[in-house]
Computed example of a mutant assay.
Amino acid sequence: MNCPDCDNDRTRVLDTGSNASGDTVRRRRECCRCSFRFTTYERPEWDSLQVKKRNGDIEPYDKQKLRNGIIRAVEKRPITDEQVAELLETVEAELRARDERIISSSLIGDLVSENLRTLDQVAYIRFVSVYKSFSEPQEFLKELDAVLDAELDDFEDPNRSQ
């Protein structure tokens, strides 16, 4: 732990304690160089979401990374920052409701896709083309046909979606 005052990497622990629930450790530290005293808090990393990538790697969930992907999909579309923030909150709430520490990246992609599809169909196509790694025009066409078929079904039977 580096000293926040002089950035020395040698500090010593003066006192250690935990909070009432026992999920956080509080440590009083002192810098060996400048004698500056400060407090650090430690909590288990497993409290936060982890993402299992397609290649098997596990990394911490990064809201900003997900936001950037959504922003690219909705670029130049009539989607507000508030709608993007709401979509992110919806996806995160669904992830946390699963009560799992490690979430697959494909689940995150599916949740974003579902929410984008109702928000903006062009943004949805853009997102799934990257998320599903489309490499052939036929893949775009197949997904576009599915979106158009669903739209036609809703148009022909407006009571169906209610």
Rank of each mutant, 00 (worst) to 15 (best):
N159A: 12
E82P: 00
D110C: 01
A150Q: 09
S104E: 13
N159G: 06
D154K: 11
Q121M: 10
V25G: 11
E42F: 11
V122R: 02
R12W: 02
Y41G: 03
R27I: 12
T24N: 04
F36V: 07
S104D: 15
A150E: 14
G109L: 06
R27L: 08
N8T: 07
I79N: 03
Y124W: 04
S113E: 08
D5S: 13
D47P: 00
D7Y: 04
E86V: 08
D145V: 02
Q64V: 13
D81N: 15
P137L: 06
P44S: 13
R33L: 12
P78H: 06
V128H: 10
I125K: 00
F38S: 14
R96A: 08
Q50V: 04
G69A: 06
F36C: 10
T40V: 15
F134A: 10
V112Q: 07
E89V: 00
S129D: 08
T90M: 09
C32Y: 01
P137K: 02
V51D: 01
S133E: 11
A85R: 02
R26A: 12
S21Y: 05
E89F: 02
R12L: 11
V91F: 07
F155R: 13
E136T: 02
V122Y: 09
R96H: 11
D149Q: 09
L111K: 10
T118A: 14
Y41M: 04
D157K: 09
D157T: 13
A20M: 08
R33C: 06
F38E: 11
E156G: 00
K63F: 13
